[in-house]
């Protein structure tokens, strides 16, 4: 039986980065041996870390910069990254939590069905694309900073949040409202909701995306999520309420309902 806490160095004996399949096998084996807390040091671009891992009570700390597809198909563990992530963090994720003390770039949360992703910094394009939800499974992606175009494209469920803040060690700076999100916001959205802190210009909205009133229900839904966000990044939740939140939701759950003619001629 392995120790509860295990440390893995992502550098080899010659101080060169381990190939991803070698590193990932080490992580898989440590978890299968019963480790509950795996600390991975010196990560440098290794892809597919924690791919499809199902260990529910496992915590993985990553120091450095993981490569693409961190937590792809993730189904249980909590991953905390002390650094920034590349693309496709939490790709097709099913359960678990990913906390990023930095940025996480393009297509974070692609097609996720459940689980939570909290990013302290900024993100790139197409974040939360085609997220979906089912029964009590609902994916959540929160960015403390700003994101680029096509935020929540094709979205079929779940919750996306962009807060537009620069979260420093002891202070929080605001980003101008129109820089929090960009154009083609929620293009093709047919489920779920996008929350943007600040005003969203009408022309940012993509096909089928609508600005809707932010109600008490939304507040009730968001509060525990934002509290969790603030806990990870050690900031008071009051900062968030200083600016109004805009809700973007689909205009219809069947945006293409009458598009086709099913008759055969």
């Amino acid at each position: 039986m392995a120790k509860k806490k295990m440390e893995i160095d992502a550098l080899d004996g010659d101080k060169k980065p381990l190939r991803y399949w070698v590193l990932n096998e080490k992580i898989h084996n440590a978890a299968d041996d019963g480790a509950k807390h795996i600390v991975v040091k010196n990560v440098l671009g290794q892809r597919f870390i924690a791919d499809c891992m199902e260990h529910k009570d496992l915590k993985i700390d990553i120091h450095g910069t993981p490569g693409n597809d961190l937590g792809v198909f993730l189904s249980g563990p909590t991953i905390e990254v002390f650094g920034s992530c590349e693309d496709q963090t939490g790709n097709t994720m099913n359960a678990g939590t990913i906390i990023v003390h930095g940025n996480a770039w393009d297509v974070t949360g692609l097609a996720a069905r459940n689980g939570k992703i909290f990013v302290k910094g900024n993100g790139g394009y197409r974040i939360g694309i085609h997220m979906k939800e089912y029964q009590d499974q609902r994916p959540i992606v929160v960015y403390g900073g700003c994101v680029k175009e096509f935020f929540g494209e094709y979205m079929a469920g779940g919750i996306l949040v962009a807060l537009g803040m620069k979260i420093g060690n002891n202070k929080v700076e605001e980003v101008p409202s129109k820089e929090v999100v960009r154009g083609s916001l929620g293009s093709g959205i047919h489920g779920g909701a996008i929350y943007v802190r600040g005003e969203v210009p009408e022309h940012y909205l993509g096909v089928a995306a609508n600005i809707q009133p932010f109600t008490d229900d939304d507040l009730k839904l968001l509060t525990p999520i934002l509290k969790e966000f603030c806990k990870y990044f050690k900031m008071p939740i009051e900062n968030i309420w200083e600016r109004e939140i805009t809700k973007i939701a689909p205009s219809s759950s069947r945006p293409y309902g009458a598009y086709y003619n099913p008759r055969t001629v």
């Binding site: 069905r113 085609h130 979906k132 939800e133 089912y134 499974q137 094709y154 079929a156 469920g157 093709g188 047919h190 489920g191 759950s253 069947r254 945006p255 293409y256 309902g257």
Partner: peptide, 9 residues
């Protein structure tokens, strides 16, 4: 694993 009655795109 999608809600009943929604389009699956």
């Amino acid at each position: 694993m999608i809600p009943k009655g929604t389009d699956a795109l």
